[in-house]
Measured scan of single mutants.
Amino acid sequence: MQGVVKVNSALNMRSGPGSNYGVIGTLRNNDKVEIIKEVDGWYEIRFNGKVGYASKSYITIVN
């Protein structure tokens, strides 16, 4: 499943599904990501070869 990031500035990509996990990357508005699965309001995603987590509130699913 594919998604597009929708933010005003930047979205942190984290090592786990929560804001208490470390930041491993930064996503920008309109970045395209691969959604692997949903975990407690977060998406596990793949972006630029990295796998991490981002809040699903800021990612819109596209077909």
Rank of each mutant, 00 (worst) to 15 (best):
residue 30 N to Q: 09
residue 42 W to P: 00
residue 63 N to F: 04
residue 55 S to K: 12
residue 20 N to W: 12
residue 28 R to M: 14
residue 25 G to H: 12
residue 50 K to C: 05
residue 42 W to M: 03
residue 58 Y to F: 11
residue 31 D to R: 03
residue 35 I to Q: 01
residue 13 M to W: 08
residue 12 N to D: 15
residue 35 I to A: 02
residue 2 Q to W: 14
residue 38 E to D: 07
residue 43 Y to L: 07
residue 24 I to Y: 02
residue 38 E to V: 10
residue 2 Q to C: 04
residue 26 T to S: 10
residue 19 S to G: 12
residue 24 I to H: 03
residue 50 K to H: 11
residue 56 K to G: 10
residue 3 G to H: 03
residue 32 K to Q: 07
residue 26 T to E: 10
residue 17 P to F: 01
residue 61 I to C: 04
residue 12 N to G: 14
residue 2 Q to L: 15
residue 46 R to I: 06
residue 55 S to Y: 13
residue 1 M to E: 07
residue 35 I to R: 00
residue 14 R to N: 11
residue 10 A to V: 15
residue 36 I to S: 06
residue 44 E to A: 12
residue 17 P to V: 02
residue 35 I to F: 04
residue 18 G to Q: 03
residue 19 S to P: 15
residue 48 N to Q: 14
residue 39 V to T: 08
residue 33 V to W: 02
residue 7 V to D: 05
residue 57 S to G: 06
residue 17 P to E: 01
residue 51 V to Y: 15
residue 26 T to W: 10
residue 15 S to Y: 09
residue 36 I to Q: 10
residue 28 R to A: 10
residue 45 I to D: 00
residue 30 N to V: 03
residue 42 W to G: 00
residue 41 G to F: 06
residue 47 F to G: 05
residue 6 K to A: 14
residue 46 R to G: 09
residue 47 F to L: 07
residue 2 Q to E: 11
residue 39 V to C: 04
residue 15 S to V: 09
residue 42 W to D: 02
residue 15 S to A: 13
residue 28 R to L: 09
residue 3 G to L: 03
residue 45 I to C: 04
residue 6 K to E: 13
residue 54 A to S: 09
residue 61 I to W: 05
residue 60 T to H: 08
residue 42 W to A: 01
residue 62 V to H: 08
residue 5 V to G: 05
residue 25 G to P: 00
residue 50 K to L: 15
residue 41 G to A: 09
residue 6 K to S: 10
residue 21 Y to A: 04
residue 43 Y to F: 15
residue 26 T to H: 13
residue 14 R to D: 01
residue 54 A to P: 00
residue 50 K to R: 14
residue 33 V to Q: 00
residue 16 G to Y: 02
residue 19 S to I: 14
residue 19 S to A: 13
residue 44 E to H: 10
residue 7 V to W: 04
residue 53 Y to P: 00
residue 47 F to C: 04
residue 37 K to H: 12
residue 22 G to F: 07
residue 20 N to Y: 12
residue 22 G to K: 14
residue 29 N to P: 10
residue 43 Y to H: 02
residue 7 V to C: 05
residue 11 L to A: 09
residue 1 M to C: 05
residue 49 G to S: 09
residue 37 K to N: 15
residue 2 Q to R: 08
residue 11 L to T: 15
residue 1 M to F: 13
residue 28 R to G: 07
residue 14 R to L: 14
residue 11 L to W: 02
residue 36 I to D: 04
residue 41 G to W: 06
residue 24 I to F: 03
residue 46 R to F: 11
residue 20 N to K: 15
residue 17 P to A: 05
residue 31 D to C: 04
residue 38 E to P: 05
residue 46 R to T: 09
residue 62 V to W: 06
residue 58 Y to R: 09
residue 23 V to R: 06
residue 33 V to I: 06
residue 4 V to I: 15
residue 7 V to G: 10
residue 8 N to R: 04
residue 19 S to M: 13
residue 40 D to V: 07
residue 4 V to N: 05
residue 59 I to N: 01
residue 46 R to E: 13
residue 44 E to F: 11
residue 28 R to D: 15
residue 10 A to S: 12
residue 16 G to Q: 03
residue 57 S to H: 08
residue 29 N to L: 06
residue 1 M to G: 11
residue 13 M to I: 13
residue 30 N to G: 14
residue 38 E to T: 07
residue 23 V to C: 04
residue 25 G to L: 09
residue 32 K to E: 06
residue 41 G to Y: 05
residue 30 N to C: 05
residue 61 I to H: 07
residue 49 G to H: 12
residue 22 G to M: 08
residue 2 Q to H: 12
residue 13 M to N: 01
residue 48 N to S: 11
residue 4 V to H: 06
residue 37 K to D: 08
residue 36 I to W: 05
residue 10 A to L: 14
residue 56 K to L: 08
residue 39 V to Y: 13
residue 42 W to F: 10
residue 17 P to S: 02
residue 60 T to R: 09
residue 63 N to L: 07
residue 39 V to D: 12
residue 54 A to C: 04
residue 14 R to Q: 09
residue 6 K to H: 15
residue 39 V to F: 09
residue 60 T to V: 14
residue 9 S to Y: 13
residue 40 D to T: 10
residue 24 I to W: 02
residue 43 Y to P: 00
residue 21 Y to S: 04
residue 10 A to D: 12
residue 58 Y to P: 03
residue 26 T to N: 08
residue 62 V to A: 07
residue 44 E to I: 06
residue 20 N to L: 14
residue 58 Y to S: 08
residue 62 V to G: 08
residue 46 R to V: 07
residue 44 E to C: 05
residue 63 N to H: 12
residue 18 G to T: 03
residue 27 L to P: 01
residue 13 M to F: 13
residue 21 Y to I: 01
residue 38 E to H: 06
residue 20 N to Q: 11
residue 6 K to V: 12
residue 58 Y to T: 06
residue 8 N to W: 06
residue 53 Y to F: 10
residue 32 K to V: 15
residue 47 F to Y: 15
residue 59 I to F: 05
residue 16 G to E: 02
residue 45 I to Q: 00
residue 55 S to G: 14
residue 49 G to R: 08
residue 18 G to K: 03
residue 12 N to R: 14
residue 13 M to R: 00
residue 8 N to E: 11
residue 44 E to Q: 14
residue 11 L to D: 03
residue 53 Y to Q: 00
residue 55 S to D: 14
residue 48 N to R: 08
residue 60 T to M: 06
residue 21 Y to C: 04
residue 40 D to H: 11
residue 18 G to N: 05
residue 34 E to L: 12
residue 57 S to A: 10
residue 50 K to T: 15
residue 48 N to K: 11
residue 45 I to A: 03
residue 6 K to G: 10
residue 19 S to F: 13
residue 60 T to A: 14
residue 43 Y to A: 03
residue 13 M to T: 03
residue 19 S to H: 11
residue 54 A to M: 04
residue 20 N to I: 11
residue 56 K to S: 09
residue 38 E to Y: 06
residue 16 G to F: 02
residue 15 S to L: 06
residue 50 K to Y: 07
residue 56 K to P: 06
residue 43 Y to E: 00
residue 58 Y to Q: 07
residue 18 G to M: 02
residue 31 D to E: 11
residue 50 K to N: 15
residue 46 R to H: 14
residue 5 V to I: 10
residue 8 N to D: 11
residue 42 W to Y: 11
residue 35 I to G: 01
residue 40 D to F: 11
residue 35 I to Y: 03
residue 3 G to F: 03
residue 46 R to C: 05
residue 56 K to N: 08
residue 18 G to W: 01
residue 48 N to G: 12
residue 9 S to A: 11
residue 20 N to V: 12
residue 53 Y to S: 00
residue 29 N to M: 09
residue 28 R to F: 12
residue 59 I to W: 02
residue 29 N to R: 07
residue 18 G to R: 03
residue 9 S to F: 15
residue 49 G to W: 06
residue 51 V to Q: 10
residue 29 N to Q: 07
residue 47 F to N: 06
residue 48 N to Y: 08
residue 23 V to L: 06
residue 40 D to G: 11
residue 49 G to I: 05
residue 22 G to V: 11
residue 57 S to E: 13
residue 7 V to Q: 04
residue 55 S to Q: 14
residue 17 P to C: 02
residue 54 A to L: 06
residue 38 E to W: 05
residue 61 I to M: 15
residue 48 N to M: 11
residue 22 G to Q: 11
residue 51 V to P: 07
residue 45 I to S: 01
residue 34 E to R: 05
residue 16 G to M: 02
residue 6 K to Q: 14
residue 24 I to N: 07
residue 7 V to H: 08
residue 49 G to Q: 08
residue 3 G to C: 03
residue 47 F to S: 09
residue 37 K to R: 15
residue 11 L to M: 11
